[in-house]
Nucleic acid binder design. Structure first.
Lengths: 168, 168
DNA sequence: GACTATCGCTAAGTTGCTTAGCGATATGAC
DNA sequence: GTCATATCGCTAAGCAACTTAGCGATAGTC
């Protein structure tokens, strides 16, 4: 059977409104479509990275923080991931079990520990990220300065709209 | 205590590399920083929308599909959300319990049902989305045509880089 | 030195997923 | 037409990952 037939929303019923419920929203320019696509693809990419490292979503986000910020305490991880400290303990347990991090004593505060990402794991993740990050970086580098300025200003406005919407 | 002190990564240890593990990655232009920020803010915004509708993440994503595509069958939801059909049943159970959707018989196939989003719920979500979507749409509309073209082309390249990275 | 706060952790309970399998309905071969 | 097979939504049982509550150890404060 044709899988795309189903994807085209064959389940609309006559009695239900045929127009998608959001039809009143401006369909959006291709720019806004692209932005949404980037957000979606970014989630897809995260899933793939999670498979590569063989970790679940929470643990992957923890790894991202560790890779970007360097060693962190479990309590810091819990606040960054917005999970309980108990859950953070389990995150570190799992990451340690598969060898992505190690627990080390905190040099100054003996209540704390330090969660250190293993270099092999960081390299593995970097290897997967590099084509994407590098490709985008290259695309940016290839931009004429005026174009880069235009894009930077526009994206800044988008960020501001997000922040404003989140403040309200 | 100063909460920012912790945020600045105070847990680095002397024996662990002081440089964040990803320091070898080009720090990235402000454009790439903005792109990442948009992805992150988008996730934040989704969380907030989930709170507004009082549903968990999976159920919110289901609602997004229903709002954008109109009524769908549980099996279609299961494939879109990449969950089992059993989980899709539970999603619909929960959404129905809080009144966001209703189950209706499929007019042509009596095995199927149709999950129809309730208009009140769609309106509630739209109300929360409008400031953001509208604000961004306005920002796009205010762009000179040449700038819009520049941005559209660039974002298209970013999308392509994502797709290429996901193909590999 | 006593009080209080914070650290990481364990235990018990909850939520949301999975796989397996069921009855009902649709579809295709003959 | 009839029968075999596939698909639909659903239930049941098990598992993974979260929560809250609370504990012992350590740090900071008076």
């Amino acid at each position: 059977m044709d899988p795309m037939a189903e994807a085209r929303n064959p389940d609309s019923t006559p009695q239900a409104s045929r127009r998608p419920a959001f039809a009143d929203f401006p369909e959006g320019s291709s720019i806004s479509r692209e932005l949404r696509e980037i957000v979606k693809l970014s989630a897809d990419f995260e899933r793939r990275l999670g498979r590569t490292l063989a970790v679940n979503h929470t643990d992957l986000v923890a790894m991202q923080h560790l890779m970007e910020s360097g060693p962190l305490s479990p309590s810091e991880l819990s606040s960054r991931l917005r999970i309980s400290t108990a859950a953070a303990t389990m995150v570190v347990d799992r990451l340690e079990a598969v060898g992505h991090v190690s627990r080390q004593p905190h040099p100054e505060d003996r209540r704390k520990i330090v969660v250190v990402p293993r270099e092999d794991s960081v390299r593995l993740a970097a290897q997967e990220l590099l084509p994407l990050v590098g490709g985008v970086a290259q695309a940016i580098a290839d931009l004429p300065a005026e174009d880069a300025a235009v894009i930077e200003r526009f994206l800044g406005e988008v960020v501001e709209h997000y922040r404003a919407a989140l403040d309200g």
